[in-house]
């Protein structure tokens, strides 16, 4: 064997292990990518359990996987758990992912959204804020903060974030306008509330909730005609939804010119809803508005005799006590 042949064989022996390692690496990367694709496809098809199984297997087998790939699989896994309403596991997955990738925008938003969904609003606020630290004008984070602050009743902050979101996003969304209108309505900023409720109505004019909100705003502005028109429309669209109906009858019972109509309507309502305490109360109020005090008091006594500790009962008791 010539020297050259021996030298070539020597080189092959030297590089073979390295080549095989690189080759194995390529295979591993290929396998990881395939698993991620499979998990994503399973998720997209709604096969959440399958996506979870692939995701879990991936994380067990590839603990040293690069962050980029781990991030993708964590997102699929977390989203799949969330889609199956398994919030505990979804929270664990996102939190675990954020330990590895604390600055990942999408993961922070996913976790914030999940906290919002599970009504842990203070935690949602914390992670929306983290998302804003990564991307200071992120629209999803701004909107999330607007909604989370609305839920905890911190209305000025809620309005602040809604405003920022609306300034940056020209896309018209009835639900955002509606929430912003609610935030203003609850703070008695009635002009802003009506402006945005009407914007929501322009986009979605078959939504009873929007008409109901507009009716309540007009009612607080003492614009009775507009309030009645809108609450009637809300009733029509919602097929006489009970909360809207009772509110409408309460308004009518409180006014002298409509108290008698309210009395007739509430008696009809009571036939279908014999257990409604508010209906009995509305009957009493419509009698009181019409000056029929004794009759009204006998109605309130019916509420007093009921065995509960509701606010309605406490009010009825107080009216009886004061008369």
């Amino acid at each position: 064997m010539s020297f050259n042949k021996i030298f070539v064989l020597f080189l092959i022996t030297l590089f073979l292990p390295l080549q095989s390692e690189a080759f194995l690496g390529i295979i591993k990367r290929f396998d990881q990518k395939q698993k991620i694709t499979a998990a994503r496809e399973a998720y997209a098809k709604g096969n959440y359990q399958e996506a979870i199984e692939i995701g879990q297997k991936f994380l067990t087998e590839n603990q040293e996987a690069p962050k980029r790939r781990a991030r993708r699989i964590y997102l699929v896994l977390g989203n799949a758990y969330a889609a199956l309403d398994d919030y505990d596991h979804a929270l664990l997955t996102y939190n675990e992912a954020l330990e590895v990738l604390p600055k990942d925008l999408e993961l922070n938003l996913a976790l914030a959204n999940l906290y919002y969904k599970t009504e842990l609003y203070d935690k949602a606020i914390e992670f929306y804020n983290r998302a804003l630290q990564i991307d200071k004008d992120n629209p999803k984070a701004l909107l999330g903060l607007g909604r989370a602050y609305l839920k905890i009743g911190f209305l000025s902050k809620s309005r602040h974030y809604f405003k920022d979101y609306l300034n940056q996003n020209k896309e018209k969304d009835a639900s955002v306008y509606y929430d912003y209108a609610i935030s203003n309505f609850l703070s008695n900023n009635l002009n802003m509330a009506i402006e945005y409720a009407q914007k929501a109505q322009e986009i979605d004019n078959n939504n009873p909730d929007i008409y109901f909100l507009i009716a309540k705003i007009h009612n607080n502005l003492n614009e009775n005609k507009m309030a009645n028109e809108n609450i009637n429309k809300a009733l029509q669209l919602s097929d006489n939804r009970e909360d809207i109906l009772l509110t409408s009858l309460l308004w009518k019972a409180y006014k002298k010119d409509t108290a008698n109509d309210a009395l007739k309507e509430i008696k009809e309502y009571q036939k279908q809803n014999p257990n409604s305490q508010l209906a009995v109360f509305i009957e009493g109020i419509s009698l009181l508005t019409q000056g029929k005090k004794q009759k009204a008091l006998s109605i309130f006594k019916k509420i007093k005799e009921q065995n509960n500790d509701s606010f309605i009962k406490q009010i009825a008791e107080q009216i009886i006590k004061n008369n």
Binding site: E242, L278, S310, I312
Partner: peptide, 22 residues
Amino acid sequence: QNIFAVTAKEEDAILRDFAWQK
């Protein structure tokens, strides 16, 4: 039975919102 009836809590809330404004 009216299975869509508002709950006692919701009835309280309707009256509370109305009376608070007054």
